[in-house]
Amino acid sequence: MTLDDLRVFVAVCEAGNLSAVARDLACTQSAVSQHVKRLERETGVALVERHARGVVPTRAGRVLYEAAQGGISSLDAALRHLGELRDGRSGTVRITTGGVTVRHFMAGTIPLFRGRHPETTLEFRSSHSARRCIELLHGGWADLAWITFGDPLPGIEQRPVVDLPWVLVVHADDPLAERDSIDPATLTAIRYIAHPDNSVSHRRLEEDFIRLGVRPPTPVGTADWDTAVLLAELGIGHAVLPSLPRLDVGAPLRAIPIPDLTPLAVGWAARRWHTLSPPAAEFAALVTRHLTGEPTP
C-alpha cells in the first residue's frame, strides 16, 4: 500500500469514474484500476462497486476513503509548511467562507494580523454554502473555514465562536418598525426575504418555524444577508437575519429582536487543529478574541 495508491483511491471515490481520474492524472484507466486492486488485495475486502455509470465505494471503501482523505490532507498541509520553512517563506493562510463573512466577522482583525505578519498572505475563497467550505477543507484547498454550524461533520474539527440572535430588519416607515420585539405569529404575515435554499441559516429558520408551530411566511425574494438588508431598505420586504457584528441598520432601517428564534452558531472549522500553521492558528485566535471581547495579547 503506497501513498500514490491512497491518493488515486481518494480521487476515484470523489470522481466516481475511473476514466475521469485517468484523464486528470494523465495515465491509463488500467493504471488507475491497478491502484485500487492493489489496495483491495492488501485489505482483503472489496473497496468499490462497478456500475454502468462508474464506481461507488463499498461500506469498507467509505471507511478507507474517510481515513485516507483526512490523512492525505494533513500530510499535504505539513509538507507545504515544511517547504515554507525550508525556503524561508512566511506562507499563506487560506480561508474559505461565505461571501459576506469577511466584512461582518473579520474586518476588525485583518489589519491587526497584517501588521503582525506583513509577509504572510491571507487568501480568501468565497463559497456559496457551508457544505462547499467543508469540501474545500477536505480537499486541502483551505486551512480554515468560517461556517454556520449545522450537522456534525465527519473528519472536521469545529470550534463555535459566537451565537447570533435573530432580528427582523424593516424600513423605518413600516408598521412593524414601532415594535419592541417580534413574536412568532407576526412572522407568518411578513413579506419574507428568504435565505438561499442551500444555506444552513435557511434550514435553521425552517426548523424553528416547525418547532414554534407557525406557518412559514411566503417569500417575496431570496437573497444573502447583505442583499436582504438592501432590499429591506428599498421597502421590498422584511429580512429575518442573525444580528451580525457589522450589521448596518442605521436610518432608514430598524432591527427588531425575535427572541423566540434559536440563536445561530457560527465559528471555525479545520481538518485537524493541531496541524494548522502558526499563522493560521493565530489568525483564527485573533478573530475569536475580537468577536468574544477577549483581550488581544
Rank of each mutant, 00 (worst) to 15 (best):
L79N: 03
W273S: 02
M1E: 03
D226R: 14
G293E: 06
D143C: 05
A145L: 02
E49D: 09
H195P: 01
H274G: 09
R50L: 05
I210R: 12
R272Q: 14
T58Y: 13
V45K: 14
L247Q: 04
Y192S: 07
A284T: 07
R271F: 00
I193V: 07
I256Q: 04
T262V: 14
S19R: 12
L25K: 08
W166C: 07
L253H: 04
R204A: 10
I110E: 08
P259H: 04
F113S: 10
S73H: 09
P259W: 02
L82S: 05
T227V: 12
L79E: 10
F149A: 02
G88N: 09
A77N: 09
E178A: 15
V249T: 13
L164E: 09
T121S: 08
A251R: 13
W141G: 10
H128I: 15
S74V: 15
F209D: 01
V170A: 09
C27M: 13
L261P: 03
I147Y: 08
H171P: 03
L205P: 04
A78Q: 11
E84G: 06
L234P: 00
L168G: 08
V240T: 12
E157H: 11
E207C: 07
T188R: 08
A269K: 09
I95T: 01
Q158D: 05
V56H: 09
A285S: 14
V36K: 07
T109I: 04
P175Y: 01
A60F: 14
I258S: 15
V240C: 04
S126A: 11
V170K: 01
R179A: 15
L75F: 14
A185F: 12
A281I: 04
L276T: 04
A145W: 01
D5F: 08
A280F: 06
V161R: 00
A270E: 01
H128M: 13
D173E: 13
H81A: 12
H104T: 10
Y192E: 05
I182S: 13
S90R: 10
A107N: 11
G98R: 12
G44A: 07
P57Y: 14
S181V: 11
G237I: 06
E157P: 02
S243R: 15
T218W: 06
G88F: 10
V56S: 11
E206P: 02
P175Q: 00
V266K: 08
E66R: 15
A172Y: 08
A130Q: 11
V287K: 09
